[in-house]
Amino acid sequence: MSDSPDYSVADDLAVALTLAAEADLIAMDRYRAQDLGIQTKADKSIVTDADTRVERMIRAHLAEARPHDAVLGEEFGSEGSSNRQWIVDPIDGTSNFARGVPIWGALIALLVDDVPVVGVVSAPALERRWWGAAGLGAWVQHHGGEAQRIRVSRIDRLTDATLSYNNLQTWDQYGHLDTLVDLSRRVGRTRAFGDLWSYMLLAEGSIDIAGEFDVKPWDIAALVPIVTEAGGRVTTISGSPALDELNVVATNGLLHDEVLGAFAG
Rank of each mutant, 00 (worst) to 15 (best):
P67F: 04
D49M: 02
E79F: 12
R129L: 13
L168R: 14
A42R: 15
T162G: 00
D51I: 02
R59H: 14
V140T: 04
Q141H: 07
P67D: 09
I103A: 03
T52G: 05
L72A: 05
D156N: 14
P67W: 07
I108N: 13
E127F: 04
W104D: 06
E127N: 09
M57Q: 15
W130M: 12
A133W: 13
R154C: 00
W171F: 11
L110E: 07
P124D: 05
G93P: 07
R151H: 15
T159R: 00
D92K: 09
L110H: 08
S164L: 04
V112D: 12
V118P: 07
D113G: 07
L136P: 01
L111T: 11
Q173P: 01
K41G: 08
L111F: 08
D156S: 10
I108Y: 10
V117A: 05
R56L: 11
L136F: 05
Q141C: 11
G77V: 06
V88M: 04
T94E: 09
G175Y: 09
E75C: 02
I87S: 04
H143T: 12
D172G: 11
R99C: 10
E64W: 03
G77F: 00
A106M: 06
D113N: 06
S164A: 12
G132S: 05
Y174G: 07
G80I: 03
V115Y: 10
V120W: 13
T162L: 00
D156V: 01
V101C: 00
E74N: 04
S81M: 11
R99D: 12
E55T: 14
G80W: 03
R84H: 15
H142Y: 13
S164Y: 02
L72K: 04
A125M: 09
R59W: 10
L126S: 08
V54C: 02
T48G: 04
G93Q: 08
I150F: 00
S153E: 02
S122Y: 11
N96Y: 14
E74S: 14
Y165G: 08
